[in-house]
Protein backbone atom coordinates (compact mmCIF):
# COMPACT_ATOMS: atom_id res chain seq x y z
CA UNK A 1 0.00 0.00 0.00
CA UNK A 2 1.22 3.47 -0.80
CA UNK A 3 0.75 5.64 2.22
CA UNK A 4 1.19 9.35 2.19
CA UNK A 5 0.97 11.18 5.44
CA UNK A 6 -2.26 12.99 6.05
CA UNK A 7 -4.12 15.37 6.80
CA UNK A 8 -6.40 17.95 8.46
CA UNK A 9 -6.26 17.64 12.19
CA UNK A 10 -9.22 18.49 14.33
CA UNK A 11 -9.06 18.05 18.05
CA UNK A 12 -11.21 15.11 19.07
CA UNK A 13 -14.50 16.13 20.54
CA UNK A 14 -15.74 14.88 23.82
CA UNK A 15 -18.70 12.53 23.96
CA UNK A 16 -21.83 14.31 22.87
CA UNK A 17 -23.74 15.87 25.71
CA UNK A 18 -26.41 13.42 26.65
CA UNK A 19 -30.06 14.15 27.01
CA UNK A 20 -30.28 10.51 27.88
CA UNK A 21 -32.04 9.49 31.01
CA UNK A 22 -30.83 6.55 33.06
CA UNK A 23 -33.57 4.56 31.35
CA UNK A 24 -32.23 5.16 27.83
CA UNK A 25 -32.63 1.55 26.65
CA UNK A 26 -36.30 1.85 27.54
CA UNK A 27 -36.72 4.96 25.37
CA UNK A 28 -35.24 3.08 22.42
CA UNK A 29 -37.55 0.12 22.92
CA UNK A 30 -40.62 2.34 23.27
CA UNK A 31 -39.61 4.32 20.19
CA UNK A 32 -39.44 1.13 18.13
CA UNK A 33 -42.77 -0.10 19.53
CA UNK A 34 -44.43 3.19 18.64
CA UNK A 35 -42.89 3.23 15.18
CA UNK A 36 -43.92 -0.37 14.49
CA UNK A 37 -47.50 0.32 15.56
CA UNK A 38 -47.48 3.24 13.12
CA UNK A 39 -46.38 0.85 10.37
CA UNK A 40 -49.23 -1.51 11.25
CA UNK A 41 -51.84 1.21 10.78
CA UNK A 42 -52.25 0.62 7.06
CA UNK A 43 -55.47 -0.39 5.28
CA UNK A 44 -54.35 -3.99 4.49
CA UNK A 45 -53.22 -4.60 8.07
CA UNK A 46 -56.37 -3.06 9.49
CA UNK A 47 -58.47 -5.22 7.19
CA UNK A 48 -56.68 -8.34 8.43
CA UNK A 49 -57.20 -7.21 12.02
CA UNK A 50 -60.92 -6.69 11.33
CA UNK A 51 -61.08 -10.22 9.95
CA UNK A 52 -59.47 -11.48 13.15
CA UNK A 53 -62.03 -9.57 15.19
CA UNK A 54 -65.13 -10.93 13.47
CA UNK A 55 -63.91 -14.46 12.74
CA UNK A 56 -64.54 -15.96 16.25
CA UNK A 57 -67.97 -14.33 16.45
CA UNK A 58 -68.84 -15.81 13.05
CA UNK A 59 -67.81 -19.30 14.19
CA UNK A 60 -69.82 -18.94 17.42
CA UNK A 61 -72.85 -17.78 15.49
CA UNK A 62 -72.51 -20.78 13.17
CA UNK A 63 -72.16 -23.13 16.17
CA UNK A 64 -75.27 -21.68 17.76
CA UNK A 65 -77.19 -22.05 14.51
CA UNK A 66 -76.32 -25.75 14.39
CA UNK A 67 -77.17 -26.41 18.05
CA UNK A 68 -80.34 -24.34 17.78
CA UNK A 69 -79.86 -23.17 21.35
CA UNK A 70 -77.51 -20.87 23.23
CA UNK A 71 -74.14 -22.50 23.89
CA UNK A 72 -73.30 -23.68 27.39
CA UNK A 73 -70.66 -21.72 29.33
CA UNK A 74 -68.24 -24.67 29.05
CA UNK A 75 -68.71 -25.20 25.32
CA UNK A 76 -68.43 -21.45 24.75
CA UNK A 77 -65.21 -21.31 26.77
CA UNK A 78 -63.69 -24.19 24.80
CA UNK A 79 -64.59 -22.65 21.45
CA UNK A 80 -63.43 -19.18 22.41
CA UNK A 81 -60.19 -20.56 23.86
CA UNK A 82 -59.43 -22.42 20.65
CA UNK A 83 -60.35 -19.45 18.50
CA UNK A 84 -58.92 -16.49 20.37
CA UNK A 85 -55.88 -17.22 22.60
CA UNK A 86 -54.88 -19.99 20.22
CA UNK A 87 -55.86 -19.13 16.63
CA UNK A 88 -56.24 -15.33 16.60
CA UNK A 89 -53.22 -14.72 18.86
CA UNK A 90 -51.08 -17.18 16.93
CA UNK A 91 -51.96 -15.66 13.57
CA UNK A 92 -51.60 -12.11 14.86
CA UNK A 93 -48.16 -12.82 16.23
CA UNK A 94 -47.11 -14.60 13.05
CA UNK A 95 -48.01 -11.46 11.10
CA UNK A 96 -46.38 -8.98 13.46
CA UNK A 97 -43.47 -10.70 15.19
CA UNK A 98 -42.02 -12.90 12.46
CA UNK A 99 -41.01 -10.06 10.11
CA UNK A 100 -39.16 -8.22 12.92
CA UNK A 101 -35.81 -8.39 11.10
CA UNK A 102 -36.85 -9.40 7.58
CA UNK A 103 -39.01 -6.31 7.24
CA UNK A 104 -36.09 -4.04 8.15
CA UNK A 105 -33.83 -5.82 5.66
CA UNK A 106 -36.42 -5.50 2.91
CA UNK A 107 -37.10 -1.84 3.63
CA UNK A 108 -33.37 -1.11 3.82
CA UNK A 109 -33.82 0.31 7.33
CA UNK A 110 -31.82 -2.41 9.10
CA UNK A 111 -28.61 -0.50 8.58
CA UNK A 112 -30.07 2.61 10.25
CA UNK A 113 -30.98 0.50 13.27
CA UNK A 114 -27.81 -1.60 13.44
CA UNK A 115 -25.52 1.43 13.76
CA UNK A 116 -27.38 2.79 16.80
CA UNK A 117 -26.18 1.87 20.28
CA UNK A 118 -28.47 -0.92 21.41
CA UNK A 119 -30.42 -0.53 18.17
CA UNK A 120 -30.61 -4.24 17.46
CA UNK A 121 -32.02 -5.24 20.82
CA UNK A 122 -34.34 -2.26 20.83
CA UNK A 123 -35.63 -3.32 17.43
CA UNK A 124 -36.41 -6.82 18.66
CA UNK A 125 -37.89 -5.84 22.01
CA UNK A 126 -39.80 -2.90 20.57
CA UNK A 127 -41.25 -5.06 17.81
CA UNK A 128 -42.14 -7.64 20.47
CA UNK A 129 -44.01 -5.00 22.47
CA UNK A 130 -45.80 -3.77 19.37
CA UNK A 131 -46.69 -7.33 18.35
CA UNK A 132 -48.08 -8.09 21.79
CA UNK A 133 -50.01 -4.81 21.94
CA UNK A 134 -51.45 -5.16 18.45
CA UNK A 135 -52.35 -8.84 18.75
CA UNK A 136 -53.79 -8.50 22.24
CA UNK A 137 -55.91 -5.55 21.07
CA UNK A 138 -57.24 -7.57 18.13
CA UNK A 139 -57.84 -10.64 20.29
CA UNK A 140 -59.64 -8.68 23.00
CA UNK A 141 -61.78 -6.93 20.43
CA UNK A 142 -62.62 -10.36 19.02
CA UNK A 143 -63.56 -11.50 22.52
CA UNK A 144 -65.79 -8.48 23.09
CA UNK A 145 -67.55 -8.93 19.76
CA UNK A 146 -68.00 -12.66 20.41
CA UNK A 147 -69.44 -12.07 23.88
CA UNK A 148 -71.69 -9.24 22.69
CA UNK A 149 -73.22 -11.69 20.25
CA UNK A 150 -74.87 -13.25 23.30
CA UNK A 151 -74.82 -16.85 22.11
CA UNK A 152 -73.06 -18.16 25.24
CA UNK A 153 -74.93 -18.56 28.51
CA UNK A 154 -73.31 -16.43 31.21
CA UNK A 155 -70.70 -15.48 28.60
CA UNK A 156 -69.50 -12.34 30.32
CA UNK A 157 -68.12 -14.40 33.22
CA UNK A 158 -65.63 -15.87 30.73
CA UNK A 159 -64.08 -12.50 29.98
CA UNK A 160 -61.48 -12.36 32.83
CA UNK A 161 -60.31 -15.94 32.12
CA UNK A 162 -59.91 -15.36 28.40
CA UNK A 163 -58.31 -11.95 28.82
CA UNK A 164 -55.68 -13.54 31.07
CA UNK A 165 -55.10 -16.32 28.55
CA UNK A 166 -54.88 -13.85 25.66
CA UNK A 167 -52.19 -11.83 27.43
CA UNK A 168 -50.18 -14.90 28.37
CA UNK A 169 -50.53 -16.35 24.89
CA UNK A 170 -49.21 -13.13 23.36
CA UNK A 171 -46.33 -12.85 25.83
CA UNK A 172 -45.22 -16.47 25.44
CA UNK A 173 -45.73 -16.98 21.75
CA UNK A 174 -44.40 -13.59 20.77
CA UNK A 175 -41.13 -14.55 22.42
CA UNK A 176 -41.24 -17.97 20.78
CA UNK A 177 -41.55 -16.41 17.32
CA UNK A 178 -38.69 -14.02 18.06
CA UNK A 179 -36.25 -16.89 17.60
CA UNK A 180 -37.11 -17.74 13.96
CA UNK A 181 -37.29 -13.99 13.30
CA UNK A 182 -33.61 -13.57 14.16
CA UNK A 183 -32.25 -16.97 13.12
CA UNK A 184 -33.87 -17.25 9.68
CA UNK A 185 -35.28 -13.76 9.05
CA UNK A 186 -36.15 -14.37 5.42
CA UNK A 187 -37.97 -17.65 6.19
CA UNK A 188 -39.27 -16.58 9.59
CA UNK A 189 -42.94 -17.05 8.76
CA UNK A 190 -42.51 -20.62 7.50
CA UNK A 191 -40.15 -21.45 10.36
CA UNK A 192 -42.55 -20.00 12.92
CA UNK A 193 -45.46 -22.04 11.58
CA UNK A 194 -43.20 -25.09 11.91
CA UNK A 195 -42.24 -24.08 15.45
CA UNK A 196 -45.89 -23.54 16.35
CA UNK A 197 -46.89 -26.96 15.03
CA UNK A 198 -43.92 -28.90 16.37
CA UNK A 199 -43.35 -27.16 19.70
CA UNK A 200 -46.79 -25.92 20.69
CA UNK A 201 -49.07 -28.52 19.21
CA UNK A 202 -46.90 -31.63 19.11
CA UNK A 203 -44.45 -31.35 22.00
CA UNK A 204 -47.11 -29.51 24.01
CA UNK A 205 -49.28 -32.60 24.00
CA UNK A 206 -46.54 -35.08 24.87
CA UNK A 207 -47.00 -35.98 28.52
CA UNK A 208 -43.31 -35.67 29.39
CA UNK A 209 -40.80 -33.07 30.59
CA UNK A 210 -40.72 -31.50 27.14
CA UNK A 211 -44.27 -30.19 27.36
CA UNK A 212 -43.28 -28.22 30.46
CA UNK A 213 -41.38 -25.94 28.08
CA UNK A 214 -44.41 -25.04 26.01
CA UNK A 215 -46.85 -22.17 26.35
CA UNK A 216 -49.79 -24.34 25.29
CA UNK A 217 -49.45 -26.57 28.40
CA UNK A 218 -49.55 -23.50 30.65
CA UNK A 219 -52.58 -22.02 28.89
CA UNK A 220 -54.51 -25.31 28.96
CA UNK A 221 -53.69 -25.79 32.63
CA UNK A 222 -54.82 -22.27 33.46
CA UNK A 223 -58.03 -22.69 31.48
CA UNK A 224 -58.85 -25.89 33.39
CA UNK A 225 -58.01 -24.30 36.73
CA UNK A 226 -59.75 -20.96 36.18
CA UNK A 227 -62.83 -22.63 34.75
CA UNK A 228 -62.93 -25.04 37.72
CA UNK A 229 -62.86 -28.09 35.45
CA UNK A 230 -60.18 -29.99 37.35
CA UNK A 231 -62.49 -32.73 38.61
CA UNK A 232 -64.40 -32.99 35.35
CA UNK A 233 -61.35 -33.70 33.21
CA UNK A 234 -61.02 -37.44 32.48
CA UNK A 235 -58.02 -39.09 34.11
CA UNK A 236 -56.34 -39.73 30.70
CA UNK A 237 -56.67 -36.07 29.78
CA UNK A 238 -55.17 -34.96 33.09
CA UNK A 239 -51.79 -36.02 31.70
CA UNK A 240 -52.09 -33.14 29.28
CA UNK A 241 -52.38 -30.47 31.95
CA UNK A 242 -50.16 -29.33 34.77
CA UNK A 243 -51.62 -29.46 38.26
CA UNK A 244 -49.42 -26.76 39.79
CA UNK A 245 -51.15 -23.59 41.02
CA UNK A 246 -51.88 -20.75 38.56
CA UNK A 247 -49.08 -18.50 39.81
CA UNK A 248 -46.58 -21.18 38.80
CA UNK A 249 -48.12 -21.40 35.32
CA UNK A 250 -48.01 -17.63 34.92
CA UNK A 251 -44.44 -17.43 36.22
CA UNK A 252 -43.42 -20.25 33.87
CA UNK A 253 -44.76 -18.31 30.87
CA UNK A 254 -42.86 -15.18 31.93
CA UNK A 255 -39.63 -17.12 32.51
CA UNK A 256 -39.99 -18.92 29.19
CA UNK A 257 -40.60 -15.61 27.40
CA UNK A 258 -37.64 -13.94 29.13
CA UNK A 259 -35.26 -16.78 28.25
CA UNK A 260 -36.43 -16.92 24.63
CA UNK A 261 -36.11 -13.15 24.25
CA UNK A 262 -32.66 -13.13 25.83
CA UNK A 263 -31.45 -15.81 23.43
CA UNK A 264 -33.02 -13.99 20.48
CA UNK A 265 -31.42 -10.68 21.51
CA UNK A 266 -27.98 -12.30 21.86
CA UNK A 267 -28.31 -13.93 18.44
CA UNK A 268 -29.40 -10.66 16.84
CA UNK A 269 -26.62 -8.68 18.50
CA UNK A 270 -24.14 -11.12 16.99
CA UNK A 271 -25.70 -11.38 13.53
CA UNK A 272 -24.24 -9.75 10.46
CA UNK A 273 -26.11 -9.10 7.27
CA UNK A 274 -23.91 -8.52 4.22
CA UNK A 275 -24.93 -5.43 2.23
CA UNK A 276 -26.27 -7.72 -0.53
CA UNK A 277 -28.88 -9.17 1.86
CA UNK A 278 -30.43 -5.77 2.44
CA UNK A 279 -33.34 -4.66 0.30
Amino acid sequence: MTTINTVNTIPPDAMPAADRGGLWPLWSVLAVARFQIGRLLTPPRLALAALGVVFPAAVLWAAESISEDRLSREAGAMILYALIPEAVCMLGLLMTMCPAVADELERGTWVHVAVRPGGRRSLLLGTYLAAIGWTAAVAMSALIVALLLGVIRDGTSLAPVLIGLILLSCIGRGALFALPAVIVPKRALVASVGVALVVEYLAGFIPAVINQLTVSLRLRSLLVKWMGWRREVPIQMQLLIDTNPPWIQVTAVFILAAVLLLVAVLILEWRQFPPSEES
Binding site: A18, D19, R20, G21, W24, P25, W27, S28, L30, A31, V32, H112, V113, R116, P117, G118, G119, S122
Partner: peptide, 9 residues
Protein backbone atom coordinates in the same frame (compact mmCIF):
# COMPACT_ATOMS: atom_id res chain seq x y z
CA UNK B 1 -34.52 7.90 20.25
CA UNK B 2 -32.80 4.73 19.06
CA UNK B 3 -29.59 6.43 20.10
CA UNK B 4 -31.03 6.55 23.60
CA UNK B 5 -32.43 10.06 23.87
CA UNK B 6 -35.64 10.82 25.71
CA UNK B 7 -38.66 11.57 23.50
CA UNK B 8 -38.53 15.29 24.37
CA UNK B 9 -34.80 15.58 23.68
Amino acid sequence: QLSGFTPAA
